[in-house]
Design a protein around this nucleic acid. Structure first.
Lengths: 141, 141
DNA sequence: CTGTGTGCAAACACTTTGCAGGTGT
DNA sequence: ACACCTGCAAAGTGTTTGCACACAG
């Protein structure tokens, strides 16, 4: 498993405290993270503006990417190794699951996105499949 | 084709000017609409707050629904007749295409969402498939 | 040493709420 | 007549920008 420092280095990001902490949080967490969630987790340790800029630089350097949802908050997830970059767009070739109870978005690593028949003329570059419902944990209760 | 007035009536929404105009706009437009887009189209004719409330009531009454994307703006589309309501969630069983050039989101009516094998424990209620790339119109140029 | 990252303050943009008056049914 | 809708004002929340200083490489 690649370490936090190796990962920062590979993506040409300077090794600073906030970056180490945010990246660690991403590596430890099994669901997608929003700005607000990260802010709460790191308590008031860092300035909110710095967090905005950190997420932006992570995204621009291809370390994380946004996951589509139908709410008004953006959620980010770490790019996996199979996340091929094409003109700054990402192909996460698996589905995501959003639980309506706990509001967390999980990667369904083993649910691939099937081949689709896109109409003539359209050039498809990226596919995102979002499933919503109730997750395994919330379903037990 | 159901008229604007019939549609408002069927969804138990009062027949007011702003509602007629917004609904007409949805019916005329082949792509999904954001708050901002609607506001520009109707110029300064209505208060922004009223627009927020109108979209909210349209959504709550099942006339429109949100389409997932990975930007920070919410986009709405008219619910089709095959958009079955289940606990206030919608099943639009076709994909959407977001063009990275013109930034419009189209319904791909004939691209259905295939059956998926969701992991045990997860209860899937809604599926959204978002394809992005370049649309047929922008591709011509 | 140099260029980048951070924190603070302020500006800016977006969304919600309360209330008074108007309108649809 | 009544409930609901609209517009205005204001509050609340989220995001961006400018600048001075600190720090990584």
């Amino acid at each position: 498993m690649e370490s936090v420092l190796e990962k920062l280095n590979r993506f040409k990001l300077r090794n600073t405290e906030i970056r180490r902490e945010i990246l660690t949080l991403f590596l430890e967490t099994e669901y997608a993270l929003s700005h607000q969630y990260i802010e709460k987790k790191l308590s008031t340790k860092f300035d909110r503006v710095t967090l905005y800029r950190t997420l932006k630089s992570f995204e621009e350097n291809g370390l994380i990417h946004r996951i589509a949802n139908d709410t008004d908050t953006i959620e980010y997830a770490l790019c996996k190794d199979d996340c091929h970059e094409q003109n700054h767009k990402h192909n996460d070739n698996h589905a995501h699951f959003r639980c309506e109870k706990c509001l967390k978005t999980y990667c369904l690593e083993h649910v691939g996105i099937p081949d689709l028949h896109i109409p003539n003329g359209f050039k498809a570059q990226e596919f995102q499949l979002l499933v919503s419902g109730v997750c395994a944990k919330c379903n037990q209760v």
